[in-house]
């Protein structure tokens, strides 16, 4: 695969994540809660997933 292409893709991703870092904190909290729900779903449905004893509770706000 063309190295320049990969560098370009990597650069685009960096810029994307940088812009996401700047979103309002209130939006970030909504995303965190959605990610908590998503992870809960993955754990329920993927029996092969290593499920550590990590404390998990979806925020009820």
């Amino acid at each position: 695969m063309d190295k320049n292409y990969l560098l370009n893709v990597a650069g685009t991703k960096v810029n994307y994540h940088k812009s996401r870092a700047k979103m309002p904190f209130e939006e970030k909290v909504k995303i965190i809660i959605e990610l908590q729900k998503l992870e809960n779903e993955f754990i329920k449905n993927n029996k092969n997933r290593k499920n550590s004893n990590k404390y998990r509770r979806v925020w009820e706000v």
Partner: peptide
């Protein structure tokens, strides 16, 4: 994590 996500893109955390 919550403090970190104030400054960077959020990922999952529970507390």
């Amino acid at each position: 994590g919550i403090a970190q996500f104030y400054y960077i893109e959020p990922s999952v955390t529970y507390d």
